[in-house]
Design a protein around this nucleic acid. Structure first.
Lengths: 324, 324
DNA sequence: CCGAATCCTTTGATCGATCAAATAGCCGAT
DNA sequence: ATCGGCTATTTGATCGATCAAAGGATTCGG
């Protein structure tokens, strides 16, 4: 491979000094327009590109953000993370940022990874997904003054307005509220909610959306309609059995996830409206409605928060109901 | 954040020179055991970690491999890429390699990305997925002397034994052969193949596995059993309709993908055995059998080939039939 | 016509590591 | 005792960029 041109080569061709070339690249405003143009021509003619590692060594920043690839299927469901990652990488690229992946088996391992990544100046910001109650990673990062944004609200102890913790999240409550309302408008009254046991932030948030919509419609007796099952990848029928056991049968079901919705759909058949969450290929394939997270907007917001020093420190986006 | 210790700090504490510290890290064999131990203690006590960017600048290698995140759902299906990535990142980590993501809308854009990544010394090897006939990326990479491994055989013009192109792939033919054979053993005779139109490397390869197994069972008349449909994410029913149109009905169906299998399953009901490909959550959810790619082995093989300079230049792995 | 104020550009040092070549220490053979 | 032949360690230079501070034009008021 040929030797790559350096700033010095460009400087020589343009008849200026290294630093002026550097200025054209980093602070073009302070360079006289004619000079700037000459330098830019030289850059183009040589096909010069800054050497990322050299720049990082000097500036002590990597222009790289780290994203964890979740180990299991828990947390963000596979396809969702995939779509989020794609949106993130694409947008990051436009801002000259790179995306580096990492994995870790548990929180302690993840913190060890943080140390490695940060010490080596590999990344200068992190994006965390699947946050939960008592997440030990957050205080660690805050304490070590690491720049990070979470996709997911700080559930629990942390104040959601804490300025040291920047986050982006999707308003699951609004999503389920919209879905439930849509079913009510279609005439359904006995609408069941199929979700996870109380205690997960996202799950409870979604349940509340259903609750609120039902209450607004004057339906206050939710006894027996609030179904809670532990999800088990080995046994996707649980949700279905819970729904099938309802007496009398529900008019419709809103769910905390597409895989729960799948169970409901298979148990009740295509005539009972079912709404899932995440709009995964599963929902598309089986033709049930689902609530889609605006992942592209999430990615944009995440990068925005990573980059900005001031202003808003969190953003709550509204999902979209995909009818089918 | 505190100033990080450097080689010089370690050297001072251990009472040796910078270079000796460097040697302990990179070529421990040439350092006298006592000295090595003293240096290692100093490293541990200071909590020293090499600065990745400085090392990269000097060595001109990044210890980072680039992986493309496919734009659409075509190519590797979402969940598959996800699982592959996870395996890759985890194994790469053990070898001290990082995984950087990139995206590109088409092949030309991707080649432009290659230039950026390589010039900036961001990555020193690439992993390509979803290769196809006449892939322009391959000759470009070979010509520019870039190290790369593809997950997927070079279909078409390239000789599969070409040493400049290293690849890892999963033997789809063997997978479908195993699946079909298993159905034959269960007594099925009229086994349909539901695949894509002739012309895609992977698709034809899978079809051949079915063909071969049928031939071996003495079934030579495959007329009408070889179904070819264009996959359309908006209309997953196509495969189902093709299968439902069979007269007489098939005993079983083997498919080139899980989403095709989904169509078949929905059209034929749970009593007709259906085998999909990729063992996605879809197969697990609906309970049909599927052929699983050994992604962890693939990841290991990819890294192996990236790292080694001699020896085997490609590897064909055998998938596993997951019965349900 | 001089000196101060601006503006733009250049020079030398530096980031933290490794490479290449030189040096020191040790052994046995002459 | 001297010298080559090893091995183990040190020294100086270097990778390609940016930072900090100094230098050179040009302009303007006095």
């Amino acid at each position: 491979m040929r030797r790559l041109p350096t700033v010095s080569d460009v400087a020589e061709v343009a008849g200026v000094s290294r630093q002026t070339v550097s200025n054209v690249l980093n602070t073009p405003a302070i360079v006289r327009p004619e000079t700037r143009e000459r330098v830019q021509e030289a850059i183009a003619s040589l096909g010069y590109r800054p050497h990322a590692s050299a720049r990082r060594l000097r500036t002590r920043r990597s222009s790289t953000i780290g994203v964890r690839l979740d180990p299991g299927t828990d947390g963000m469901s596979g396809s969702l993370l995939d779509r989020f990652l794609h949106a993130l990488v694409e947008r990051a690229d436009r801002s000259g940022l790179r995306v580096l992946l990492y994995t870790a088996a548990d929180e302690d391992a993840e913190i060890a990874v943080f140390e490695r990544l940060l010490d080596g100046a590999d990344v200068d910001a992190l994006v965390l997904t699947s946050t939960h109650y008592g997440d030990r990673r957050i205080p660690w990062l805050v304490e070590h003054d690491v720049r990070f944004v979470t996709f997911g609200r700080p559930w629990g102890e942390h104040d959601t307005t804490d300025r040291s913790h920047r986050w982006v999240d999707v308003d699951g409550r609004a999503g389920l509220h919209a879905g439930t309302t849509s079913l009510l408008e279609q005439g359904a009254r006995r609408i069941a909610f199929l979700g996870w046991p109380v205690g997960s932030g996202t799950g409870d948030d979604r349940r509340n959306g259903w609750r609120q919509a039902m209450r607004e419609a004057g339906i206050t007796d939710l006894a027996g309609l609030d179904l809670q099952v532990e999800e088990d990848p080995q046994d996707l029928g649980r949700g279905g059995r819970a729904v099938a056991g309802l007496e009398p049968a529900p008019d419709a079901v809103v769910c905390a996830s597409d895989s729960l919705a799948l169970g409901a759909r298979l148990a009740l058949g295509p005539d009972v409206p079912v709404i899932g969450y995440d709009d995964t290929p599963l929902a598309r394939a089986l033709g049930f409605a689902s609530i889609a997270q605006p992942l592209d907007e999430v990615a944009a917001a995440v990068l925005d928060l990573i980059g900005s020093d001031e202003g808003v420190h969190h953003r709550l986006l509204t999902p979209r109901l995909v009818q089918r």
